[in-house]
């Protein structure tokens, strides 16, 4: 088990008062709390800070922590032999757990001793997964894995990997949150098992953008297709469709292709919007150049008329 210096994490002296510990925690919580901070590395840092505070704010836990002695942060160590029996009357292997497991079980052991068989709910877990738009359209089976602290048959606390395949149904949206009841950590003494929360986000697609159940695709058109109208093939997840572009279509206009977006939970579909972009030949031939010049000389069209 690796040692963590909780005082160092909170930036306080070993002699700090409860008020000083609380003040240091609040300052760091404002800085790193994942629901408040924009610091992407803040979540891991806050876990450390929260773990340190939950131990040091409790007089009994702090005393037990202090009895572990001082070690350099990250150094492997084992608590003294009498430590476990003195604090919580638990058996520990000390190999597959970390310091936070030790103190949370210490606390549950205390509660167990105080209120025999008091039910304690298992821990909730939150996972994130990214899927492609194609997977969201068709539904997708993903592998989910995480580790939870559990007691083995010998009553020793160990980190146990949980792995399962979960079918993500059609109809999820980007940013969708879902819940699996009872798939988190095991409850203690008859307490309910924890839950598993899954955050689903979409991997950006090379062609499509998504908003709720609607899809958007940039539709490049040649100037003559936009001016004269055309029928063009547009890819969709349900197979390509022929889109009739009306004559006089301008860049930026959106042409709606109904029910070719993402599936909804009620088995209907969103729409696909083709966003027109006028593209010109990058290397026009002599003939193309001559024709464009002829058009420029004869046309009276002024696209900037509204500037004046």
């Amino acid at each position: 088990m690796k040692f963590k210096d909780y005082y160092e994490i909170l930036g306080v002296a070993r002699t700090a008062t409860n008020d000083e510990i609380k003040k240091a925690y609040r300052k760091l919580a404002h800085q790193y709390h994942p629901d408040v901070s924009k610091d992407l590395a803040g979540e891991e840092k806050f876990k450390e800070v929260g773990e340190a505070y939950s131990t040091l704010k409790d007089a009994e836990k702090r005393a037990a922590y202090d009895q572990l002695g001082r070690h350099p942060s990250g150094q492997e160590f084992r608590p003294p032999p009498e430590w476990a029996s003195q604090h919580g009357n638990q058996e520990f292997s000390f190999e597959d757990i970390d310091l936070s497991d030790l103190f949370s079980s210490f606390s549950s052991g205390k509660r167990h001793a105080q209120g025999r068989n008091m039910p304690m709910p298992g821990q909730d877990y939150e996972l994130s997964t990214q899927i492609t738009l194609e997977d969201a359209y068709h539904g997708k089976t993903v592998d989910l894995s995480f580790t939870v602290p559990e007691y083995d048959n010998q009553g020793q606390l160990k980190r146990v990997p949980h792995t399962f395949k979960a079918r993500i149904p059609k109809g999820v949206t980007n940013g969708q949150k879902m819940l699996l009841r009872g798939k988190g950590g095991k409850g203690f003494h008859g307490g309910r098992d924890g839950d598993l929360y899954l955050n689903i986000s979409f991997i950006p697609h090379r062609l499509f953008r998504v908003m709720n159940y609607d899809l958007f695709i940039d539709l490049p058109l040649a100037p003559w297709e936009a001016a004269l109208g055309a029928t063009v093939k547009v890819p969709t997840f349900g197979g390509a469709v022929n889109l009739k572009v009306p004559a006089g279509t301008s860049s930026g206009q959106k042409l709606r292709i109904t029910k070719r977006g993402m599936p909804k939970q009620n088995h209907e579909y969103g729409d696909l919007f083709a966003v027109v972009q006028i593209s010109v030949p990058p290397n026009p031939t002599e003939q193309e150049r001559a024709l464009l010049k002829q058009l420029a000389d004869t046309s009276t069209f002024n696209p900037r008329e509204h500037f004046v």
Binding site: M211, D214, F216, V241, N242, L243, K244, V245, P246, Q253, K254, L255, R256, I257, T258, R260, F273, A274
Partner: peptide, 8 residues
């Protein structure tokens, strides 16, 4: 994303 009708 604003919406304008089109035909298929």
């Amino acid at each position: 994303h604003t919406k304008i009708e089109g035909d298929v």
